[in-house]
């Protein structure tokens, strides 16, 4: 393995949820590292805790115990607003449910993170246009989300995730709600972004989607049962088979 820099380090992370008297251990001591340029797939059946792990890595949630670092910054030493700032500048998120703002144009949806980054109007617009171009939706810039197909919506979500040129893109089941052709397009975009230098953390429960990453880990019942390089990496542009 080439000498690369560490972006995220997770060490012995535990997460428990309490619902009244019932305690659920979602994560039970997870440790892993993500390096610059990585394409990591987190696999596991539903309820395995893979999304929770991604949320902690993406500074969306805090662990019950253990540590999570992003570029040496410790999650426990940062306030909620500082976490928000790091998410805004260094991270991008793609969710299974797209989570686009209704009645808001593609352009304005993509610009949303920039609202919170303090950029000037002109720069903002340029960045948003470039991101939309990258996912190939320039002609849909002024459409509303309900005028788009599922695949297009997810491409808008990706454009929104990359508009601030983040170091890491987190994608939580990005193909989960899509037909295979749209899913293939999405994975193609993610692979391209990875080639351009973005580090990607992908959460999926499908093996063939995970095999498009460079590395994959398998989580069961809150523990890593499998962590290794993908042997026969698939490429989305070659076709997306079920």
């Amino acid at each position: 393995m080439a000498k690369t820099t560490e972006v995220i380090e997770v060490r012995d992370v535990r997460k428990e949820y309490r619902n009244g008297a019932i305690k659920t251990d979602v994560l039970q001591g997870i440790s892993l590292k993500v390096f610059e340029g990585d394409f990591l797939a987190i696999m596991g059946p539903s309820g395995s805790g893979k999304s929770t792990l991604m949320h902690i890595m993406g500074f969306l949630d805090r662990p019950t115990s253990g540590s999570c670092n992003f570029r040496g910054k410790h999650i426990d030493s940062l306030s909620d607003d500082e976490l928000a700032r790091i998410r805004n500048k260094k991270m991008g998120f793609v969710f299974q449910m797209f989570n686009l703002l209704a009645r808001t144009s593609v352009l304005d949806n993509v610009r949303l993170p920039l609202f919170y980054s303090g950029l000037k109007g002109k720069e903002e617009l340029e960045l948003a246009k470039r991101a939309i171009e990258l996912v190939g939706l320039t002609d849909r810039s002024h459409h509303l989300p309900n005028q788009l197909s599922g695949g297009e919506k997810q491409r808008v979500a990706i454009a929104r995730a990359i508009v601030n040129n983040p170091e890491v893109i987190f994608a939580d089941e990005p193909t989960g709600n899509l037909d295979s052709k749209s899913g293939q397009q999405i994975m193609d975009v993610l692979q391209k972004l990875n080639n351009q230098g973005h580090t990607i953390v992908l959460v999926t429960h499908e093996k063939y989607t995970a095999e498009m990453a460079k590395k994959m880990i398998l989580i069961k019942d809150g523990k890593i049962v499998y962590n290794q390089k993908v042997d026969h990496r698939r490429f989305a542009k070659d076709g997306f088979e079920k």
Binding site: G58, L60, A84, R87, F95, P113, F115, S117, N164
Partner: peptide, 8 residues
């Protein structure tokens, strides 16, 4: 979503 993308 707004918080995820950086709203304080």
């Amino acid at each position: 979503l707004r918080k995820a993308v950086g709203a304080r």
